[in-house]
């Protein structure tokens, strides 16, 4: 795909909607940043490349009163579908522009390893950062390695040829997944105690998550219900996060936005991936995989399933 396909697609969709959510290039950082396009002129600044890491679906529930177009990678499309399935977003007020995704670069990891703001060039199977270069598969986001969703499940207009790519094998660069899998339950307890001891309760994880819709009345923060204390310490912070994560059961699409947003690098995806795996095994359900599927934990019927005992 080139911008030759994307920009006209956005302009076309703009004829029907108030705003299109997409990406433009950050003048300071050189990578993609989210942008809103209201006019054809603004749309000339649209880009799509492998630094388009953000999941723009997070803005849809916040734009309830507008008709919205959205540029979506395959994984983003799953979040959109899940929002529709849950009734958070209505199908008729959105237009999805599907883009063919080559797998996105873990920009946060790249910058934390090689220096913030280093120019990122993705060419010839390698990612170049001002003199350094690493094989592409070493610096892709983890989810891209297992991607089963290159083809968006919901598309109104495809910008270019939305075809599949072969996901490279899943390496584990930090080794953390393997080490975590090998830990005993006691070691895991210790591990999470240490991880959450540096949580600052900024709730960036929650705000970046397209499916976390309680937001302003989230139990991580409210006094009513008062499920977690307001102290910022390992125990309360973990409790707050565990509540959030269990509320994501059968809803999380594994988009990795929460982990990307976390400023102190807590590997939240270890918990979510585990939970997503269990949900898929138990209910044969992948959140956002189809507009027809019913989320297993939203189908409880008080009459049929026996009511509260």
């Amino acid at each position: 795909m080139s911008m030759n396909d994307l920009i006209p697609a956005i302009k076309k969709v703009l004829e029907e909607v108030d705003v299109v959510l997409g990406w433009t290039r950050s003048p300071a950082a050189g990578v993609a940043v989210p942008a809103r396009f209201h006019t054809p002129d603004e749309a000339d600044g649209a880009i799509f490349d492998s630094t388009c890491i953000h999941n723009l679906a997070v803005h849809l529930p916040r734009l309830k009163n507008s008709k919205v177009g959205i540029v979506a990678k395959g994984c983003d499309a799953r979040s959109i579908v899940q929002l529709i399935v849950e009734g958070e977003v209505s199908r008729d007020r959105i237009r999805v522009i599907g883009v063919p995704c080559p797998g996105v670069i873990d920009v946060k990891r790249a910058w934390r390893c090689y220096g913030f703001g280093k120019k990122i060039e993705d060419a010839g199977g390698r990612v170049h950062m001002e003199g350094r270069s690493v094989p592409r598969e070493e610096i892709l986001l983890h989810k891209c390695h297992q991607c089963r969703d290159q083809e968006p499940v919901i598309v109104d207009l495809a910008a270019g040829d939305v075809t599949s790519m072969t996901p490279p094998p899943p390496p584990d660069k930090s080794g953390i997944r393997e080490r975590f899998a090998a830990m005993s339950i006691t070691e895991r307890r210790e591990f999470w105690r240490e991880q959450f001891s540096r949580c600052i309760r900024c709730y960036a994880c929650r705000e970046a998550c397209p499916l976390c819709f309680c937001r302003d009345v989230c139990s991580m923060q409210t006094r009513e219900p008062h499920w977690t204390g307001g102290q910022v310490n390992a125990i309360e912070s973990e409790m707050a996060q565990q509540v959030r994560i269990s509320h994501m059961a059968g809803r999380c699409t594994g988009c990795e936005e929460c982990e990307r947003a976390c400023p102190v690098g807590i590997p939240l995806m270890l918990l979510l991936e585990e939970q997503n795996k269990i949900i898929e095994e138990l209910f044969a359900y992948r959140a956002g995989a189809s507009l027809e599927d019913k989320p297993p934990l939203l189908t409880y019927d008080i009459n049929r399933d026996g009511g509260w005992r």
Binding site: I200, C202, A204, R206, E207, G230, Q231, P263
Partner: peptide
Amino acid sequence: EKCLSCGFCAYACPACHCFNIFDE
């Protein structure tokens, strides 16, 4: 328009200093 309304920027900032008082 891009902002997600989280607490990160204030918590990372050396000059931001707002706090909330509560009893546990």
